[in-house]
Design a protein around this nucleic acid. Structure first.
Lengths: 242, 242
DNA sequence: TCAAGTTGTCTGTGATAATAGACAACTTGA
DNA sequence: TCAAGTTGTCTATTATCACAGACAACTTGA
């Protein structure tokens, strides 16, 4: 059967996309949930699977859904409200939105402190630093890639612990640090480079928010230097000035 | 330049059609008025003339506009309210709507009365009847084709006078009949035959309202037998029962 | 009667839309 | 580890969309 345009002047894929979008906005497909498979959607709309793919691609382009090969297509949750306060914990922020925080180690290595990092962490230039690069997600959605530096002398197994737990907070806890806070935060934005775009599952040319921060312990001594790239379309930073 | 779909999923001709429809509904193109020429519209929308024609064809299909070869494309006026009362005059009904009533003779002949017509006009079967077939329009819009029979003995020059005046009322006035009224009206509907459809400028398969009526003089004596076919999509009959 | 302007029809070209089938690459749960 | 189910990619075909140009048929006003 060839179900065509029906002289409506609106492409079939567009009508399928509109139908799915309606389902998302009226709650038939809740945020974060998996859509029916492409074959199932095609059958429901009496349309070829390729037409469904065109519709989903259009929705993905607008950030309403995300396809995951082998698994399914998921409704993109709305922007994550990300308050920037003294006590900023990724897991708590994500959890507060009813989503599950996840972390995955991308890279861990030891490298000497640059002059800039040494100043930031109040160490000597060239001092050994543990460099931990991790991807952080809310449910299945990549939120940011964070590169964290901390003293390799003080926290020798930082990489290993992070790989196991996916949490910097737990790394510090392992060394008896129960609390820490954000001392300074600087924000800018840029276009994601190819590597970050791929790992954040961002289309080419999309912007990232770049956060450079320093975390300190209860006494004010620097613990971490952070350089994080957030998928701009998935978060909104909230800054309270008082 | 190839201005294409722009990935919007809405065909160009459809967007042009929507734009024109907006112009009609917001009064930029008043009812009955002529639209800009196809070339002009094409230029305004930076689009090929054929694309404009597709758009106009879609609007014509829905009865919003009517194209007239050599002249232009006109905004279809809204449905004509056609009250069915004792005193029913086409020219007055159309004039009341602020439109200009027109009439055109299609056919005039003398033919013997059928049994049915004879009974209706209270004449003898086979009596000579003037048969006048006329097209009636409001402005440029064909409204109905009316076939009128009247006694050829009593009104010998009926056809000639109708050709000149386009009005049955004036034919009767010529013979001293100042007033007449509707005695009976019967209404049904059918699909327009090819000839009527062409002359009413109706698409194939469109319905016509069929009116069979008898007009009588002040004394109640039959004057006219009428068999009229109205373009159903252009009129609404209003019947007051009291 | 004529010229200008209008809609109608024809042929042709290239891009897009929608179809169909097959298989690769990947995830998930048993 | 494996099978089932998922998204991703490829090739191919047909119909529609939009373009372009030319000319016919018709209306209108000078």
């Amino acid at each position: 059967m060839t179900t065509l345009n029906q002289d409506s002047g609106v492409a079939l894929w567009r009508r399928v996309a509109d139908s799915i979008e309606r389902g998302i906005s009226d709650g038939s497909y809740p945020a974060g949930e998996r859509l029916p498979g492409e074959n199932e959607i095609a059958e429901a709309h009496r349309v070829n699977r390729h037409t469904v793919r065109r519709a989903l691609a259009a929705l993905a382009e607008r950030g309403l859904v995300r396809a995951e090969r082998g698994s399914g297509t998921y409704v993109e949750t709305s922007r994550l409200a990300y308050p920037l306060r003294a006590r900023t914990r990724f897991s708590e922020i994500v959890g507060a939105g009813g989503r599950e925080p996840r972390g995955r180690l991308l890279n861990a290595s030891i490298e000497p402190a640059t002059r800039e990092l040494a100043r930031q962490l109040e160490l000597k230039p060239g001092a050994p630093l543990a460099r931990i690069e991790g991807l952080r997600l809310a449910d299945r959605t990549p939120i940011c890639i964070g590169t964290t530096w901390l003293s390799a002398e003080r926290f020798p197994d930082a990489g290993k612990i992070y790989r196991r737990t996916g949490s910097i907070t737990k790394v510090l806890a392992q060394y008896g640090i129960r609390d820490y806070r954000r001392a300074s935060t600087r924000i800018t934005a840029a276009i994601a480079d190819a590597g970050d775009a791929a790992r954040l599952d961002l289309a080419l040319g999309r912007p990232v928010l770049i956060v450079d921060a320093t975390d300190v312990d209860a006494g004010g001594a620097p613990l971490l230097a952070i350089h994080a790239r957030f998928a701009a379309e998935r978060v909104t930073f909230e800054v309270e000035t008082d």
